[in-house]
């Protein structure tokens, strides 16, 4: 059962990924991305990480993609649908590079051994719910990165404002 679900999610993810990078219409790409994120969330659920799945949908699908859509509408590309989505020169270099990287990664995937196991076994996580497990880790050992992540978001807010502001005419 789990295997079937895994295969479904995995195949859809990869298929959607391929379609995203080859689609002419960028709005279509973004919408397909939305679908992809949902299936990623499904994969997370299979991994017993329901908190992550929720965060994925909320943040990625709900916030980031919306932002992308806004910018796409701002840019207003009507004529792009008629042109090739790919770069003129260097298309093949990109393909070659990607395939090379793929081979390298696969070689790594099948040739490594797992390190020492930690103490959050699957049963324990299932017992105290994933959210609580995450909370236990974040708010004790990783409190500092947590604060820094908050700072990064603050910077992003300010940066975004500064970049997208309209220029002052006259002073």
């Amino acid at each position: 059962m789990v295997q079937l679900l895994f295969f479904y999610f995995a195949l859809v993810v990869i298929g959607l990924g391929l379609r995203i990078v080859t689609c002419k219409n960028p709005v279509h790409s973004v919408l397909l991305m939305l679908l992809l994120f949902f299936h990623m969330a499904g994969l997370y659920l299979l991994l017993n990480a329901e908190f992550l799945a929720a965060v994925q949908v909320i943040v990625y699908a709900g916030a980031i993609l919306v932002l992308y859509l806004f910018v796409l509408f701002l840019v207003n590309l009507r004529e792009e649908i008629k042109m090739s989505p790919f770069v003129q020169k260097g298309k093949w270099a990109g393909l070659v590079a990607a395939l090379a990287l793929l081979i390298t990664f696969l070689r790594g995937v099948f040739n490594f051994t797992l390190g020492p196991h930690g103490q959050y076994t699957i049963e324990k996580v299932q017992q105290i719910t994933h959210t609580k497990a995450m909370g236990e880790a974040i708010y004790t050992t990783y409190i500092l990165p947590f604060e820094i992540a908050g700072l990064i978001l603050l910077v992003a807010v300010i940066g975004g404002l500064a970049l997208a502001k309209k220029e002052d005419k006259g002073a």
Binding site: A97, A98, A100
Partner: peptide, 16 residues
């Protein structure tokens, strides 16, 4: 993209 391709190829070589 050209810069990116070079980076990717370099990363591949190093990883290999």
């Amino acid at each position: 993209q050209h810069y990116g391709s070079v980076m990717a190829i370099g990363a591949f070589i190093l990883l290999w």
